[in-house]
Amino acid sequence: MTTTEVLIHDLVEKHGKSRNALMPVLQGVVACEKFLSEEAMIAVARELDLSAADVYGTASFYTFLDTKPRGKNIVRVCKTISCHMQGKDAIIKAIENHLMVKVGETSPDKKFTLLTANCLGWCHKGPVMLINDEVFPSVTPEKAIEIIEEFAKKTI
């Protein structure tokens, strides 16, 4: 078994072999691998006795269950109105320039994927960004770059 298959097997052991376990299992894979590869979706389908199309259809419904390859860190900048009003455009531009990517792309060193997100639930402290599961409220363009640099250093 590949490491992905082992991971999924263990997740299924933990959450149970039923359809109700699909979300936690997919979330578990994304937590480790950042996205759901073809291999991962097939392995999940096999373990839970579902069709691969069904797993793909379900996963692709959820913004955080990416089915496209992603970098080691996923940066999501809130683009909804409060953060818009508080300057999310400047944050995005700064990160784009710094990582030399556009929204939706992954940096050449595969360390970062830059995405936008809908309201993250910190509207009183915008603009907000999420890196992986961590929240960074009230960021400025400078602070955003600093934070990203921190992550770059931590990521091998």
């Binding site: 979706m41 069709s51 199309a53 069904d54 793909y56 379900t58 692709s60 419904f61 089915t67």
Partner: peptide, 19 residues
């Protein structure tokens, strides 16, 4: 068989096969 599935949501939603 479930060869076909609904994928994505919102304006990106459509009907297709695995990947």
């Amino acid at each position: 068989v479930s060869a076909l599935a609904v994928v994505n949501k919102g304006d990106h939603q459509y009907i297709t096969t695995f990947l």
